[in-house]
C-alpha cells in the first residue's frame, strides 16, 4: 500500500472486508457473497456521505447481481463532471476484478481499453490479487475508480476532451 494517500488508506480500512469466495455461477455461495457486497457498499456509501465525499451511485441491474449500473462524478475547479458507470461481474470473480466501464469516455483517453474499460493494470490489479477474496465492488471503486478519476478527469477537462454540461448547453444555444 505504499504510494497511496492517507485519506484513501484510512477510508479503505473502514470498508468491511468480504469472506465468501464465490462467483456468479456458485449458486447459494454467490448469494452469500452478494450480501457481503451490499454490506460493504452500504458502509462505504454511508461513510462517503458522512465525510461529505459522496461520489458515486451503483445498483444491481439484474436480480442475479451480475450486472451493475450507476453514476460517478468528480469535482474539478468547482464544477461537477458526471459519468455513467457500468460493469459485469466476471465468471472468474473474485479471482479477477470487475472491469469498470465509463462508456461516455470511450475513445477520449488512451488510459482506457475498448468499450470504456478503465486501465487498472499498474496501481490496482496487484492489490486486488493480493487481497482476494477480501476485496469486493466497494474496494474496486475506492482503489480503482476513485484514483483513476482523480488522475484523468483534470487532464481531460484541461485538454478540452470533455466539457462541463453547462458549457455544452450554452455553446449549443448560442
Amino acid at each position: 500500500m505504499e504510494g497511496w494517500d492517507k485519506t484513501t488508506k484510512s477510508t479503505l480500512t473502514q470498508i468491511p472486508l468480504l469472506t465468501t469466495k464465490a462467483g456468479p455461477r456458485d449458486g447459494a455461495a454467490w448469494t452469500q457473497r452478494l450480501k457481503e457486497e451490499y454490506k460493504a457498499l452500504i458502509a462505504y456509501t454511508s461513510m462517503n456521505k458522512a465525510n461529505d465525499n459522496d461520489w458515486f451511485r451503483i445498483s444491481a441491474a439484474n436480480p442475479e447481481g451480475t450486472r451493475w449500473t450507476g453514476k460517478c462524478w468528480y469535482i474539478h475547479n468547482l464544477l461537477k463532471y458526471e459519468f455513467d458507470l457500468q460493469f459485469d461481474i466476471p465468471v472468474t470473480y473474485p479471482a479477477t476484478a470487475p472491469e469498470l466501464e465509463l462508456p461516455q469516455l470511450d475513445g477520449k483517453t488512451h488510459k482506457m481499453y475498448r468499450g470504456g474499460k478503465i486501465c487498472l493494470t499498474v496501481h490496482f490489479k496487484p492489490l486486488w490479487a493480493k487481497n482476494c477474496p477480501r476485496f469486493g465492488i466497494a474496494h474496486a471503486l475506492c482503489l480503482g475508480l476513485a484514483p483513476w478519476l482523480a488522475a484523468e478527469i483534470p487532464i481531460l477537462v484541461d485538454s478540452g476532451m470533455i466539457k462541463h454540461k453547462d458549457d455544452v448547453a450554452s455553446s449549443s444555444e448560442s
Binding site: L34, K35, Y38, I42, A60, G70
Partner: peptide
C-alpha cells in the same frame, strides 16, 4: 440485516 432484499433496499435508500 442478512436478507438480500433488505440489503438491496438499504443501498437504494442511500442512493
Amino acid at each position: 440485516a442478512d436478507d438480500l432484499d433488505e440489503l438491496r433496499r438499504q443501498l437504494e435508500a442511500l442512493n
